[in-house]
């Protein structure tokens, strides 16, 4: 090895050092550790008892852990997200992206909820849903629709959907913005040419814009699905998994296992499953998009 090469490798190492230390120290090493903890029964302090894969087996079979229910809820959220939230975002992005008056103000307003802290949004919706004084029930009463009043977050039947509404609402703007950036990337000349050839707005969108923004749609679908699998903040603020575990998602189960029941092994098992699921879904979605081409 020449002296120049050594200097070069030393430089590479030094330049990478801060990032690697952070990344490995706080992300990669802990994940490997999580995988290791997941093989044990451990209360976080005392002896660790090796269990092999027993935690994983319990995770998928035990009703008390409730992971399957939580996963099912997350899948409902993912489905709603892909089939309701994303189409709304796409429609908005297409409408704004073709260049109408007031495009920028609309865009800025639609994106605003993304910037507001989820805790603030959660607290606001708590006030909206409050059964006694909440805006929703008060408004229904004023309109003479008392019979529709409801303990929105306290009733097992409505809690899940009540939690999902603000979750979906908050991020419409995010997906819209990504898609809008893509729509803006379509050259105006192509649009104009298609219009001169007699294409309607719908045809332009269908045959020109959507194929062009497909890579962004893929990113959006991946974000929507993985985001649903790891959703936490709003659910924690609104119901923390209740009532009677009706709104549990994997991350609320994980936090309970860790910090209420001191089952660090099981908590780690959930963490590992969440990583695996996120990666699996991301790969699956990428594959699906590739095949559709």
């Amino acid at each position: 090895m020449k002296k120049k090469d050594i200097v070069n490798y030393l430089a590479v190492f030094l330049f990478l050092l801060p990032a690697l230390a952070l990344f490995i120290g706080i992300l990669i090493a802990p994940i490997i550790k999580s995988a290791y903890y997941s093989l044990f029964d451990w209360n976080g302090m005392g002896e660790m008892t090796f269990l092999g894969l027993a935690n994983y087996k319990e995770l998928f079979t035990s009703k008390a852990i409730g992971f399957m229910k939580a996963l099912f809820n997350a899948c409902i959220l993912a489905t709603l997200s892909v089939f309701i939230q994303l189409p709304v975002s796409l429609a908005l992005a297409l409408a704004l992206g073709r260049g109408i008056k007031g495009e920028k103000p609309f865009l800025s307003i639609y994106f605003m909820p993304v910037l507001i802290s989820t805790v603030v949004i959660g607290q606001l919706w708590l006030k909206i849903y409050n059964p006694d004084y909440g805006l929703l029930n008060s408004a229904l009463t004023k309109m003479g629709l008392e019979n529709l009043c409801h303990i929105w977050l306290g009733d097992k039947k409505t809690a899940l959907i009540s939690v999902f509404v603000p979750t979906l609402w908050q991020y419409v703007g995010y997906h819209m913005l990504l898609m809008y950036a893509g729509v803006k990337g379509v050259s105006p000349d192509i649009r104009e040419a298609a219009r001169i050839d007699g294409a309607t707005e719908g045809q332009v969108n269908r045959y020109i814009v959507i194929p062009v923004i497909k890579p962004i749609l893929k990113v959006s679908v991946i974000f929507a699905v993985t985001g649903s699998l790891k959703s936490f903040d709003l659910i924690y603020v609104l119901t923390n998994g209740g009532p009677l575990h009706a709104t549990e998602v994997p991350s609320t189960r994980m936090i309970e296992m860790l910090f209420q029941r001191n089952r660090y092994g099981m908590g780690s098992t959930i963490a590992v499953m969440m990583i695996i699921l996120c990666f699996a879904f991301a790969l699956l979605i990428s594959k699906a998009f590739k095949e559709a081409d």
């Binding site: 990478l16 802990p30 994940i31 550790k33 999580s34 976080g44 860790l258 963490a271």
Partner: peptide, 22 residues
């Protein structure tokens, strides 16, 4: 190395909470 860092975009941050906490 770049691909390695990009893993961080997909990893849910919650996954590291236990070891980091400990």
């Amino acid at each position: 190395m770049n691909a390695f860092f990009m893993l961080g975009l997909t990893i849910p941050i919650h996954a590291s909470i236990v070891p980091v906490f400990i």
